[in-house]
Write a protein that binds this DNA or RNA. Structure first.
Lengths: 144, 144
DNA sequence: CGTCGGAATGTATAACTATTCAACCAATTG
DNA sequence: CAATTGGTTGAATAGTTATACATTCCGACG
């Protein structure tokens, strides 16, 4: 169980249900097989920019200045696959979101949109031709 | 000194300088001639939708909870794109999930399934033709 | 190997925030 | 004019979160 994975699960939980306290969050994580203390959650939440609101924990707008695409890619991108007009990115577990955000910010014209799971990002391109272009460009980021 | 006035001053303070605790805020207000306890501030802040972040107290966007598709769409849908048999919906950050849920509930026959990220929903249709139909129908929801 | 340095985590507890309960006050009603 | 109701507030304190300090793990380097 990595920190990334844990934080990914935290994000999912916070998005999908109302969590009012860190202890409550710890319970939910325990149900997913993640043992974690309130202390660690306090640190995770701060790190992730999730704050406590009257309606439970919520994400707030992140600092618009994220790390560069190259950095994120170098750190997390494991594989790039082409499936028709969809490019599938495999990342280290829990990092798909960071990577998708970085890619979104690049605003490539070939890309219609992205959506991130846990360790996978789907990149929808307008057509097969442009997907091929994107595929090649992203491949160059993968660890040589 | 009315409650409204006090909350106005709180807003100004929170916008203009970094306030880390409610006691700190009470100090600042005292400097403006407003005597107030931590208890009252706790209530004021909740009422005003101001939350504690790692960078001090901040306003956050008032939060919604989700009625009809039309309403959800009107509120969150920013863009609709067609990429072969995938329709890509761009939403305001954090709303992709609500939107996907609303769309799922509609149970359109052209739609094979949806998957939501943070600000993007992929809508997989059975083929390009049906995707085109869905694309057009969804487009009608955008920015009227 | 040893050992140094940094990241991740936990325990104990300090610091901070929210709630409970009661008081007060103004407006309203019988 | 009581009595009642709804809104605002504070003292005490319950509940929640953050911090100080210690420990463990792991990779780099001599």
């Amino acid at each position: 169980m990595t920190k990334n994975y844990r934080q990914g699960q935290i994000l999912k939980l916070v998005r999908s249900k109302r969590i009012n306290t860190q202890e409550e969050l710890a319970q939910e994580l325990r149900a997913l097989g993640i043992e974690v203390t309130q202390v660690t959650l306090s640190r995770d939440l701060r790190e992730m920019g999730i704050v406590k609101t009257a309606d439970g924990y919520r994400e707030i707008l992140p600092d618009p200045t994220g790390p560069s695409l190259a950095q994120v890619m170098a750190e997390y991108l494991l594989d790039v696959r082409l499936a028709q007009h969809i490019v599938v990115l495999k990342t280290s577990t829990g990092s798909a979101n960071s990577l998708a955000v970085a890619l979104d910010q690049e605003d490539w014209p070939e890309i219609a949109g992205t959506v991130a799971g846990d360790d996978t990002v789907f990149v929808a391109c307008w057509d097969n031709q442009r997907a091929k272009t994107v595929h090649e460009r992203l491949l160059s980021y993968v660890n040589q």
